[in-house]
């Protein structure tokens, strides 16, 4: 089985978000970039398939040269090879088309992506990618087993979960649950050394549709001061008469 894990390079979840250039760009100053947490769960699941089912695992990202430290981290965690498509990932449709080229050229059976990137929260790359390639697709995937060409997955729904059967080739949008939090892999020294020798191929983007562009950003309005109360009578009164939510 040949697996491609799609890695989105995003600000650490604790980052303060600011905009620059007249609020037209995200301010990367002082921001630490990491593997998108949803992708980290997927990557760890891919490592399980590598160890237990002899899978080959490649990782791919669409991004500029600055994303290489994030892909090296994925290699240090254990991926065999990496591919970087040298383009700014400003639109989900565009990113999916670039990844579709990577998949076509690499003959992958399973594509593991995340439910959404924690930067622009698009939640669209895996679904568009699957449709472009005519592959099966399962979103908000919290469990995945592969047996030959058959796949069994569990997906999170609004009111619980749903068990799904399908077959390879398959694209998933994964998230927390795919592996236990405590099983998430942290690169060790040996992994980091080995990662330096692993193949990282840079390819140029193909011409593709850019369906959307962000023209301006803004931060949420500052929050008013909290009203502290010291008893529940007062709280119920405020929720009813002032906030009008009960």
């Amino acid at each position: 089985m040949k697996i491609l894990v799609c890695i989105s390079n995003v600000p650490d979840t604790t980052s303060k978000i600011n905009f620059t250039d007249g609020d037209t760009k995200f301010d990367t100053n002082g921001v630490q970039f990491v593997i998108n947490p949803n992708d980290e769960f997927g990557l760890t699941r891919a490592m399980w398939f590598k160890e237990k089912q002899d899978a080959t695992v490649h990782v791919a990202t669409v991004g500029g040269p600055s994303t290489e430290s994030t892909i090296r981290k994925a290699l240090a965690i254990g991926a065999d090879e990496a591919i970087r498509v040298n383009a700014e990932p400003t639109d989900g449709f565009y990113v999916a088309q670039q990844l579709a080229e990577v998949v076509k050229n690499g003959d992958y059976d399973l594509i593991i992506a995340g439910r959404e990137s924690l930067d622009y929260n698009g939640g669209m790359v895996p679904g568009i990618l699957a449709t472009l390639l005519g592959m099966n697709f399962v979103n908000t995937c919290i469990s995945l087993e592969i047996d030959g060409a058959n796949a069994t997955a569990v997906r999170e729904i609004d009111s619980g979960k749903e068990k799904i059967t399908t077959s390879l080739p398959l694209v998933i949008g994964g998230q927390k649950g795919l592996v236990l939090e405590s099983d998430l892999k942290i690169p060790n020294m040996r992994g980091i050394m080995q990662a330096r020798q692993k193949k990282l191929t840079v390819i140029e983007p193909v011409d593709a549709l850019k369906a959307t562009e962000d023209t301006k950003f803004e931060k949420p309005a500052a929050k008013g001061a909290i009203k502290l109360v010291d008893n529940v009578d007062e709280l119920v009164n405020l929720l009813h008469n002032e906030a009008k939510v009960i």
Partner: peptide, 16 residues
């Protein structure tokens, strides 16, 4: 739309 998990908003233009 919201971006960065509600830490910001974007004005997004759709060209298709």
């Amino acid at each position: 739309r919201t971006v960065f998990s509600n830490k910001g908003f974007a004005q997004t233009q759709i060209n298709s």
